[in-house]
Design a protein around this nucleic acid. Structure first.
Length: 646
RNA sequence: GCUGCUGUGGCUCAAAGGUAGAGCACGUCACUCGUAAUGACGGGGUUGUGAGUUCGAUUCUCACCAGCAGCUCCA
């Protein structure tokens, strides 16, 4: 007999070799129906796992991530089985569970279309109905290779070949279908009650663009149909907030074929919001001791050769001039501000008294992104970033890093995005040294310094290997768009290498020359991207302080036009961005238009208001607020703007 | 860059191998109206660009450009 300890602390005695599912059944039949996986001593297993030693015992259902993954991973096997039934020549690659669903990659002659997906779904439904048991069985590497070679699955063979010699591999069999898989899985295909194939796209084998492109089918699965429907509705709902749609509809920006990809035109409304953000950022930074700079948008190639960009970033730059001609002047538009701002420091001999030197610039950058990368305002070829570099004595690093992080967090909080971000500690990839400058020792040092600071500041982060800049590690503040795709909003980077390359030195207290450390940082990210994410966050209804028009005054008839105009004039003098709608239209029509434009406040002025010298206030979010004195309304909106209320 | 889809007036969408239509928007006129669309009339498109097939293409084919989703890459 062995002992298992349940989540509530109670201990059960069972016979050695008992299957996990039997234990779950002994707890409750209902739980056994909902169970999808178990945890034994901190490791997740399928319910068919036999228990051979004293263990802690936790049951996972669909409410747990582990349970969800087991179900969705099973769904991916059902998908693969269906594809193999319909297209026997399709080759299997990999098919994991992912956030919100699963996918499976296939190499198939047949090009999968939305119509194909419908057929595959039908076949999947049959497989679910057949309620096939998923049986796990181990094979040695040799046996596994033989099996997959027999089945003519070259991608599986490649996967197995890359595993260690002595590894015992696990396989899962459901009916006629067998797949190499570590598991865990639900016990049978019948558990995949509610599923949907959502899209099919291309994806490189092993995520490497040098490899063949396979066909990936995405799907999702739930235990209940209602949950599936709810999820699909939420996805549809999120798409309605897509900045690329409403940003164009609301005339924040547009793009034009003849101008080019990734080169959006910011229309008056979009430009206004960005101007407001810039003023806010520049003022805040100056209050925090940053000095504003204005440096050139381009430079000779010599500068980038010195900075390392020419060797490490040339593909991403727009180069002007014919390099092949001897003595020809070759320029490049700047992809980063770093080397330009270094020359602010280099302008004269610096003392430790000058440090930390905090330099900020509203900096327009140009990056030659690959043609498929552009996305609305989120990923563009020309953008303007709240750039900055802090040049400091090494011992000031933690304090300055902390200051940079606090500033970034203040910005996020002000914009209401603080709960939507995650932190990534982006490190170098020691196996890909070509991508980086510096020695492994320098990288180890820079990264351990950053790790220490992050731990000290108690920043909850994930690690991104290979995500570092070529000159140093980064703290990236990540955010997801409405499609669930993650992008960097803000970044703070430690650079212990470029200062030396540029010959940056300062005279320390003791008269010695020392090389400073540099922090590359942005406080609010790049304005185009930030605007995009704000539009998605608020579905276009930006906080009042950021709205291009904050109030529309609308008289009901000509009789009150003069009173309306005087109200508007007063608001304007009080610094409110106000418009008047004097058109000869019904009030309902004017309100409808203002609502669609997400104008925060509408002041409706009829005879009654003019008579009583009040304004009837309508809020875009709360509707009719009734009448109030002009001063009361001014106080209300002024307070809202001053507090940057969301 | 790769895979797939898409491209018709400012926007949303119809139609069709024989040179295109609706709604919204826009303009004019009438209506002076109480919290999300008043009515009438009018203007506006060589169907993304270029080439090919055809008696004839906007419709079929190819290339390019742009947009979308995903992959890869990245702020």
């Amino acid at each position: 007999m062995i002992k298992i300890t349940l989540k509530d602390g109670s201990v059960k005695e069972i016979e050695k070799g008992t299957q996990a599912i039997e234990v779950v059944k002994s707890i409750s039949e209902g739980l056994a129906r909902a169970a999808l996986a178990v945890d034994l001593n901190g490791k997740t297993y399928g319910l068919d796992k036999t228990i051979d030693e004293d263990s802690s015992f936790t049951v996972y259902t669909f409410d747990d991530q582990e349970g969800r993954d087991a179900l969705r991973h099973t769904a991916s096997h059902v998908l693969a089985q269906a594809v193999k039934r319909l297209f026997p020549n399709a080759k299997l690659a990999i098919g994991p569970a992912i956030k919100d669903g699963f996918y499976y990659d296939f190499d198939s002659e047949e090009s999968f279309t939305p119509e194909t997906l419908v057929k595959i779904e039908d076949e999947m439904r049959k497989i679910v109905k057949e309620n096939l048991r998923l049986e796990r069985f181990p094979l040695t590497r040799e046996e596994a290779l033989k099996l997959m070679e027999e089945k003519d699955e070259p991608y599986k063979v490649e996967l197995i070949r890359d595993l260690p010699e002595d590894e015992v591999l696990s396989f899962y069999k459901q009916g006629e279908f067998i797949d190499l898989c570590a598991g865990p899985h639900a016990l049978s295909t019948g558990k995949v009650k509610a599923f949907k194939l959502t899209s099919c796209t291309g994806a490189y084998w092993r995520g490497d663009s040098k490899n063949k492109m396979l066909q990936r089918i995405y799907g999702t699965a739930f235990t209940k149909k209602s949950d599936l429907d709810e999820y699909l509705a939420a996805v549809e709902d999120a798409k309605k907030r897509d900045h690329n749609k409403i940003g164009r509809e609301m005339e924040f920006f547009t793009t034009v074929d003849v101008i080019g990809q990734g080169l959006p035109i910011l229309l008056p409304k979009g430009a206004r919001v960005i101007q407001l953000l810039q003023r806010f950022v520049e003022d805040t930074e100056q209050r925090l001791g940053y000095q504003l700079t204005k440096t050139p948008l381009m430079a000779k190639s010599d500068l980038y050769k010195l900075s390392g960009h020419w060797d490490h970033y040339k593909e991403g730059m727009f180069v002007m001039g014919d390099e092949s001609k001897p003595n020809a002047e070759v320029f490049a538009l700047r992809p980063m501000t770093c080397p330009f701002q270094y020359h602010v420091f280099l302008n004269r001999m610096r003392s430790y008294r000058d440090l930390p030197m905090r330099l900020a610039e509203t900096s327009t950058l140009f990056r030659n992104e690959d043609s498929g990368e552009m996305h609305g305002l989120i990923r563009v070829r020309q953008f303007t970033i709240s750039e900055g570099h802090i040049i400091m004595r090494p011992e000031q690093l933690e304090e300055e890093f902390k200051g940079s992080l606090e500033l970034a967090r203040y910005m996020l909080e002000t914009l209401g995005l603080d709960d939507d971000v995650s932190y990534r500690f982006s490190q170098w990839d020691p196996n890909d040294k070509e991508k980086y400058i510096g020695t492994p020792e320098q990288w180890d040092e820079a990264q351990s310094v950053m790790e220490k600071i992050l731990d000290h500041l108690q920043v909850p982060y994930t690690v991104g290997v290979g995500e570092a800049a070529f000159y140093g590690p980064k703290l990236d503040i990540q955010i997801r768009n409405v499609h669930g795709k993650e992008d960097t909003l803000i970044t703070i980077q430690i650079d212990q290498m470029l200062a030396e390359k540029f010959g940056m030195e300062y005279i320390d207290v003791d008269g010695s020359r020392r090389t400073p450390y540099i922090i590359h940082r942005t406080s609010i990210g790049c304005y185009e991207r930030t605007l995009a994410l704000l539009i998605e966050k608020y579905a276009g209804a930006l906080p009042c302080w950021l709205m291009p028009t904050q109030v529309v005054v609308m008289p009901i008839t000509d009789r009150t036009a003069d009173y309306a105009k005087s109200i508007a004039k007063n608001l304007e003098q009080a610094g409110i961005r106000v418009e008047t709608d004097l058109r000869n239209e019904k009030i309902g029509y004017k309100i409808r238009e203002a609502q669609l434009e997400k104008i925060p406040y509408m002041l409706i002025i009829g005879d009654k208001e003019a008579e009583a010298e009040v304004v009837a206030v309508r809020s875009r979010s709360e509707g009719d607020l009734g009448t109030m004195k002009y001063d009361e309304f001014l106080g209300k909106i002024t307070f809202e703007i001053a507090t940057m209320a969301k």
